[in-house]
């Protein structure tokens, strides 16, 4: 690559980074992306769920209760990814003071919180027929519960501080500090003796189930990520509208929609 080409790449990256700082720009370009991710999420989640529920074979030990995996694993994975994204947004907000980062930090909370609650609930419902208990206090389940409380904390902190800028920075600090919990969740089953089994998928090893079982799981995982993307864009646009409600462009938009 020539010097000038790499220079122009870095310049356009820089321009893009600066544009990201503009909520209006984001609002105007994100519509098609929201629709794309929404359609993908619908197709993937319906396919993966029907496949997992009706077509995947049952497990030789757990029978049909193992089908709960197809809702438990995607919600658990995405709840941690959402938190990592909020940690990154927190970093960007604290260092670069980017408005959009603060909006991500507030708009991602409801989805992440509901997914964490869902992962804990489906885990309990799966635990009863397989382990013989709804809930146990092992390192995995406890660190997941901590994640739920971190989400509660982020939500409550935002409500408790009236000044938007202060609330944003407080949430950014909590989001960043809380990311320490993510590796604990991931490695809890390897570091300590737990009732929860270790991961079925690793980056290096082959999956510990046949394709007829993991393909629908992969589809649902991809689907839930697309759903998060669509949902986050939708909530971001709403946050932008609310925070910029008195600007000319939002008022023009409102008049345009009502006309």
């Amino acid at each position: 690559m020539s010097m000038s080409a790499s220079l122009s790449v870095s310049q356009s990256l820089k321009a893009w980074w600066h544009k990201l700082g503009s909520p209006r720009w984001f609002y105007e370009i994100s519509g098609p992306w929201q629709r794309l991710f929404g359609v993908l999420a619908l197709v993937l989640l319906v396919t993966g769920t029907v496949w997992g529920l009706a077509f995947a074979p049952q497990d030789y030990q757990q029978g049909n209760s193992f089908r709960i995996m197809y809702v438990h694993v995607p919600t658990a994975i995405v709840s941690q990814s959402v938190y990592m994204l909020m940690g990154a947004a927190g970093l960007v907000l604290l260092v670069w003071r980017m408005k959009l980062a603060d909006m991500v930090l507030s708009a991602a909370v409801p989805f992440g919180m509901s997914m964490t609650a869902c992962a804990l609930f489906t885990g309990a419902v799966w635990g009863k027929p397989t382990w013989g208990a709804w809930w146990v206090w092992d390192a995995r389940t406890t660190s997941m519960l901590v994640l739920l409380f971190l989400y509660f904390g982020l939500y409550a902190l935002r409500q408790a501080i009236p000044r938007e800028e202060t609330a944003g920075r407080a949430c950014a600090v909590l989001a960043l500090v809380g990311t320490v919990n993510i590796p604990i969740i991931k490695y809890s089953v390897n570091w300590w003796l737990t009732l929860h089994q270790p991961a079925s998928f690793t980056l290096t090893g082959a999956p510990s189930m046949p394709p007829s079982m993991w393909v629908p799981l992969l589809i649902n995982v991809l689907g839930i990520y697309c759903l998060f993307a669509a949902n986050l864009i939708g909530r971001l646009k709403l946050t932008i509208l609310e925070r910029e409600r008195n600007t000319q462009w939002v008022r023009a938009l409102v008049r345009e929609v009502s006309a």
């Binding site: 497990d59 030789y60 382990w131 013989g132 208990a133 009732l195 089994q197 270790p198 510990s208 046949p210």
Partner: peptide, 18 residues
Amino acid sequence: SQVLAKHDENYMPPELAE
């Protein structure tokens, strides 16, 4: 007073397990 079953990370259809 309580017995909990621990399962591993391997899943398999019954036919394959046989």
